[in-house]
Amino acid sequence: MRILEVQGITVRFGGLVAVSGVDFHIDHGEVVGLIGPNGAGKTTLFNLISGAITPSSGIILFKGDNITRLKPNEICRRGIARTFQLVKLFSDMTVLENVMLSCLFRKPRVTKDEAAHESMELLDFVGLNGTESLPARELPIGGQKRLEVARALATKPELLLLDEVMAGLNPAEVAEAIESIKKIREKGISIMLVEHVMQAIMDVSDRIIVLHNGEKLAEGVPCDIASNETVINVYLGGTISC
């Protein structure tokens, strides 16, 4: 069963075609990796799915419904959440308030106590326990990325878009992040993630999509992608294990 289906999606910024006729789908419960060189259009593709920008052409179906021209808040309420590559936290609000906000604007409504309780559990889950009363801006960058994830999870998504949540983490933290992603998936949430940390992508993804100059260059299981000549030439630069 497909949770997301993207058909011929294209977006232009002036003369630049940032995403060009991309087709792909995500199945229920699947983890799909999205890789490609800098400027390939990965973040732009997330922006299209989450409604931050509207495509020049093409359609996006979520659970069979056309969501192409909906606003971000409508798309969120239907069940797609995301994180931002350049973190966009509510920096003067506390860590707890950042997460509670997402709970409080969900349907069905929850009380403030329920929201606080659930938010504390999510902060525990991403390893931010003990920081809840700090202003979000005081977290180190790794903590801010985790808060982005907790805040997105608090909207109770069915599909989670993670944009480089591992960038800037040390190897131990990357290993933790991989475990978290596997646990999120066990909750039944489908995931699409952009990452430059190849070992992580190969480890968690069921399927990988490669983007290059806004076009889909290749798609397949991690081992096929790791040994694909074109992908090695334009992006990987050498063989990696899968």
Binding site: K71, C76, R77, A81, F84, F90, L101, R151, T155
Partner: peptide, 12 residues
Amino acid sequence: QSEEAADHMGIN
């Protein structure tokens, strides 16, 4: 603080 993020958290 971030209108775009608020929009993406389901707030109209």
